[in-house]
């Protein structure tokens, strides 16, 4: 069973795998905005735009 949410940018319906985690990032399949999972409840995810890359980000 997939987990569903709505892209906050283009309002596309987004289906994610069941093992999705809070704080996970991915691209919206429709508008390609980088999104982050804010919360998960009962197979519904709340999504928000991922934070912009900061100067100390990396590996």
């Amino acid at each position: 069973m997939s987990v569903e949410g709505t892209c906050p940018v283009c309002e596309a319906e987004v289906n994610l795998k069941e093992d999705v985690l809070v704080s996970e990032i991915f691209s919206c399949p429709d508008c390609h905005s980088i999104l982050v999972v804010d919360s998960i409840y009962d197979h519904q995810v709340s999504l928000k735009e991922a934070p912009a890359i900061e100067e100390d980000w990396g590996q």
Binding site: D19, L21, V22, S23, E24, I25, V36, A50, P51
Partner: peptide, 9 residues
Amino acid sequence: HSTIRKEEK
């Protein structure tokens, strides 16, 4: 972690 990437998964 902070943002979870493919690597963390």
